[in-house]
Design a binder for these strands. Structure first.
Lengths: 209, 209, 209, 209
DNA sequence: CATGAATGAGGATTCATTCAT
DNA sequence: CATGAATGAATCCTCATTCAT
């Protein structure tokens, strides 16, 4: 809601934000407790209302930040050049995987929109500004070079590693049970990702004869 | 908790169960309201406690049923024979996709275990009895025949369509925004799935040269 | 409420009564649970209402029986004769003590009237028919013989052993703590009672010079 | 649970405590109503939970205070000196009687521990620090002087007036019925106590020849 | 006589939010 | 900016009691 003016205020606001992100991520919107956030942030509950209006407002901020995170992530792909084209799929998959590793709360907040979404105002439609454009042109180059199939659209090409990395992280627990393998084990993860890359993108790109 | 003895009681219990499944699926555990479940099931709130003990007990039952559903689904794959081997990947992906379509609450309940899991006792570990064994032998045959790469383990082979179908359904809303395409549109879904199958399994199987 | 007609009904009614006595005695009126009584009595809850009307009615029956018990106890003192006069105090105290031992729920039900009493209709005023008359004449004989002081009325004489035995049993737990002695231990009880008798009634009766 | 920090908070906490003591004393733990306590204390129900945790916690505090009361009472006996020895029994009995008169809820709370006790954690075992030691030495002096019998231990000596005063107060209602005398009438009480003192402690002390 | 199902009025407890200082 | 106190609307759950068979 209102912005913090003084440095002290900014610090307080920031501490609330960190605590709220954790709380929402691990308990969900309904399960999250304002009291817990206040205690974790070591501030008075009232400050939350001063800075963020109400619980919804606080969640919205956390939710917005979640979107900024992927945006920032996809920004990194702007540095890819034509010579990365053959490895494009691998690079994207690996990039998304490490992103999830660095932001373990990301998928949690994100999946909530799909679970309970609509309750909270969508953040400013940012999809238009995502740098998918750059990746798309690199992919098109790959298609022209015969590295990627003309029958597989860019949407599909980007959808698959997004799905794989997201699902790997979000369903790690239940899939470990199902496959009877510990997916949180780095060695297991490396092996599986290697095989998945091979399956999706072949030795080089994803030749489909 | 206690079982209903008479047919009338069983009907009541069943109505509660249906309502609870919907409520939990769309609101989450913390967001679900016992009052709402009672109203939806058109029964007296107290019946819920008589039949399921408490909110946790009710959720656990719903959660158990969720596991039985996938188990039953995977059972269907037992009817596949050697001649299905070349199309194995496609069949599994399509099967999972239609499963999610028929059980729109499945991924919701399932993802909750990964989000907030541990709070509720795991249902009897059924993974051991899943008929993965059958699929695995079919896949091995495919590998021997050179249809599937020896460098891609069965775990990977089964992981990928599982991930794709789950993610497609669960993140339909946000991904529609991101890709600026309506993934709930059947035509879009058909196209994307066709391309994904091509990407994952090639023209036939998934030749990796 | 209604009486049971058949032998089977009488047995059911009786089982309810036993269970109710225990439940009320150990949980109090408010703390007692109809469900628990039904379960303990191994009958259907509905039977309680058929036989006793409601919770209050059931308690009233238990409460009435409690009064009958002391009445019956005091009846036993009718067998005392003139030659018991010197030991009258001792006999009464010992009698009450053993009564409490045989009916451990007595003081519990009884004290509830004093705690919460008034809520439940007093049972038929039975005090008039108590055989205090007999004890009183024996005591008067003792006074004439100089065994008991003329300055101590019969009321006081009977009050004291009543109080001692009741308090000993009802406050056994807390008094054991306070005196740092286990009052439930038979040897301790015997010693204490011996001393109390000596203190109250002297070597013989209770000479006060 | 948490303590009130400001004077205003302390006042609120205190009002809750007073109301709770009355409610528990007259209705018992199970019969007491949080709503009633809140209404009587003229505070918001939630404050009870803020200050005392839950119903059990609130009762425990009341219960602890009950123990402090007797402790404080027994403290007063520290002022007795050797010249009080002949009247020791009378003084103690009278002291306890007036204590019960000033704290009419004491026996109620106290007896509940014996009725339903064990449900609530025992308050810090204070019996060790009770000033029984002082009374005991005075009694021993009395024994040496021949005022008190050597065959009656201090435990018995203290037990009897404790029992009498407690029972008199706690069973006033039912005993009034039984003895057909109104024990709440001050004149009756005075007469009975006089006689009891005579019976227990004789003209002076409690000579047993 | 006996039973399982059903009910509605509570009753304890929680929680987002506001007040007062 | 910051805090402890206060509030009222839920929210889960219980319990005596009645219904229907």
């Amino acid at each position: 809601m209102s912005d913090a003016a003084s440095p002290k205020g900014r610090a307080t606001r920031s501490r609330i934000f960190e605590a709220a992100t954790r709380e929402f991520a691990f308990k969900g919107f309904a399960g999250a407790r304002i009291d817990v956030i206040a205690r974790e942030a070591e501030i008075n509950k009232q400050r939350i209302y001063a800075y963020f209006g109400d619980k919804d407002g606080l969640f919205l901020e956390v939710w917005k930040r979640t979107f900024e995170l992927i945006y920032e992530k996809t920004q990194e792909f702007l540095y890819l050049t034509e010579e990365d084209v053959p490895d494009l799929g691998r690079i994207i998959l690996a990039g998304y995987m490490s992103f999830h590793e660095r932001h373990p709360e990301f998928w949690r907040i994100f999946v909530m929109e799909n679970l309970f979404g609509g309750r909270h105002g969508r953040p400013g439609h940012t999809s238009g500004d995502t740098p998918y454009g750059h990746l798309r042109s690199l992919y098109n180059i790959g298609q022209k070079k015969g590295i990627y199939s003309n029958d597989v659209s860019f949407e599909t090409f980007i959808f698959v590693p997004t799905a794989i990395s997201f699902f790997y992280t979000s369903n790690m627990k239940t899939m470990s049970d199902t496959l009877e393998t510990d997916l949180s084990n780095p060695a297991v993860k490396a092996k599986l990702m290697g095989e998945i890359s091979l399956m999706l993108f072949g030795e080089q790109g994803c030749h489909v004869d």
